[in-house]
Design a binder for these strands. Structure first.
Lengths: 343, 343
DNA sequence: CCGCGTCTCTTTAACGATACAGACGGTCGA
DNA sequence: TCGACCGTCTGTATCGTTAAAGAGACGCGG
């Protein structure tokens, strides 16, 4: 059987198509009696209600928003930071009866950009930075919001954002460790830098801007301390554990280690304990993000308001009139037991 | 500026609209030269590529699939079982360049069913059972796949599914504990039963079918043992911990506790340890699902192939021709250290 | 020189709905 | 009694695209 349309119903009942449409969407536009007849007839004919796509085309709105990820979607569900953001984002969307489309657009995969092209959405958000997918979305005329600082602050930004001041956060971490007397610090750097050796001199390479800002801030805050940067291929607790191997068995073991994210820092702490080293006594460890598990693990870290990021991103998309569309949220250094002064 | 359409470009170039469309979608249908001109002109005029919605309407496919949840979306991201399923599901979708729309349709909220109506998707899947949202989707003519047994096995099922035999799984658990000599067993039951007192006699109430089947199986497998059912309002580790209070301080403390899910069982084990009771020595604990963390925690449980569930659900949606659309996957009792014979 | 296939491009007709501007009869105040 | 207004319903024009079939030109083999 072919699909039943409003037109079919109209023809059978001898009314106009518009009346059928109104029966479904605007009850006040026709008599209760006729409306009743239309609905009844529609049910009898097996009409399944207005077609979502047709309605979207005509009305120009989809009531759906895309969330883009730079990684595979399974990463989005496994990274605690990403999950927390997504939860906050979805709570707002849910309340407004809007739905969410998940889009995976790996930076490496140019073809994946068509996913942005083909997405029937009213806007695009991402926990990521202002990646090509965002730019593509803006070219399509869609509002975008990203949540990780990508360009240098002050430089001209194209889309809306909700970020923190990663440089200042890094600076606070560096300064804090310097005050504790740390002179030899290792820095576990994020997802770029595949397979490179440790560096004594910082060069940015392909690093994400937010990581770059954190690192620059840390270096500045540390002043003249001796810093070695360990490039990790990926941002995960596995990478953090692997870093244990690269760092803990060295003769010139650092007195403090900073990871650009908590997942890495927590993995690194695992590695420490496996070797009988207690973070906060034998070595200091600092992270960024402040995940729920970081509190339990006693990790000193930069708290970042991830739920606010998610919530505000959703609100910006839902309300295009809202002023203040470029938001820098406050962060905070949370000192816990994983750091200690140098003896 | 108003939106630029293929029609506008066609008019300017003096070609037909179809030619413009073909320039974007079917390069072999026009000369390379003309195609070049069209694309160039389009770019110059600020054309953003074919409109996703219009294309969907015309072609009748959206290349998007909905995932429905009975709970708030934030639950979907926080429950490990749900996350694992989603990851597997999304991997398949991603590979086929299809996208995923998340829909929250709480059973309580009747209005939320319109979300199904308004979703522009080619099919609907869910980790949940065959809830009203699924039925609604089928009324719309959409294929559906659910992954938690809802109707009794053998009864007529309307939609496709990928499930396990929850009754048999429960039976194995019961039988196993009986062999270990357990005579007094408490059963932590799932998300229905809000605020009810423990029961000596099992009555099903509003329980999900899969939980019902598990419990029936357990009871059968346990034979004549004394069983008390503790209704938990929700399925979470918090609920499991709360159960500790309800169970561990009683005079007639059971020798074994079965939870209908691992999250609850793990929470309960926490509560045990907080009271100085070691699971597998002082009390036996069994769960269902076999989460990654269950292995680490030493929890005896029923392994259920959650990734296969997700993967197959996606494959069924993507390939409507595939035979065998009602799948019962194997499960397995995994014995770990949380269970022991009665002294 | 004719017929036929090929390459390009055009024409026509949807896809299924809603916005917008009437039309028509009846009521009501002046 | 007249015009304004209201409640109902209709007709038409899109929304932006693509499917399907057709039309003209050109080359090529017979």
């Amino acid at each position: 059987m072919a699909k039943v349309t409003q037109q079919d119903i109209a023809k059978v009942l001898g009314v106009s198509v518009m009346t059928v449409s109104n029966a479904f969407n605007r009850p006040d536009q026709l008599s209760a009696d006729l409306r009743e007849r239309v609905l009844e007839r529609a049910a009898k004919m097996g009409y399944t209600g207005p077609d979502a796509v047709a309605r979207q085309l005509r009305s120009g709105r989809t009531n759906t928003f895309a969330v883009v990820f730079e990684e595979r979607l399974s990463y989005a569900f496994s990274d605690p930071f990403s999950v927390a953001w997504l939860a906050a984002f979805s709570e707002v969307m849910e309340r407004k009866r809007a739905s969410i489309t998940l889009l995976s657009v790996p930076a490496a995969d140019v073809d994946a950009l068509v996913a942005i092209q083909d997405a029937a959405v009213d806007g695009v958000a991402g926990l990521c930075g202002d990646q090509p997918a965002m730019a593509r979305a803006r070219e399509r005329g869609l509002p975008t919001v990203y949540c990780t600082r990508t360009s240098e602050p002050g430089s001209e930004q194209a889309g809306d954002y909700v970020v923190i001041d990663d440089y200042a956060a890094g600076f606070e971490v560096g300064q804090y460790l310097r005050r504790l007397g740390h002179q030899r610090v290792f820095l576990l750097a994020g997802a770029a830098y595949a397979g490179q050796p440790p560096m004594k001199e910082y060069h940015r390479g392909d690093l994400d801007t937010s990581d770059h800002l954190r690192i620059s801030g840390v270096l500045e805050g540390l002043g003249g301390a001796e810093v070695t940067i360990i490039p990790m291929g990926t941002n995960s607790s596995t990478a953090g554990r692997a870093a244990g191997v690269a760092v803990l068995d060295r003769r010139d073991r650092p007195t403090a280690v900073i990871a650009v994210s908590d997942v890495m820092a927590l993995g690194f702490m695992d590695a420490c304990r496996q070797r009988g080293l207690e973070p906060g006594r034998d070595i200091s460890v600092v992270g960024f993000d402040d995940l729920p598990e970081s509190a339990a693990g006693g990790l000193t870290t930069i708290h970042q308001p991830v739920r606010d990021k998610g919530r505000l991103a959703a609100e910006l998309l839902l309300d295009p009139q809202r002023p203040d569309r470029r938001i820098v949220l406050p962060h905070e250094l949370i000192v816990r037991s994983s750091t200690h002064p140098v003896a």
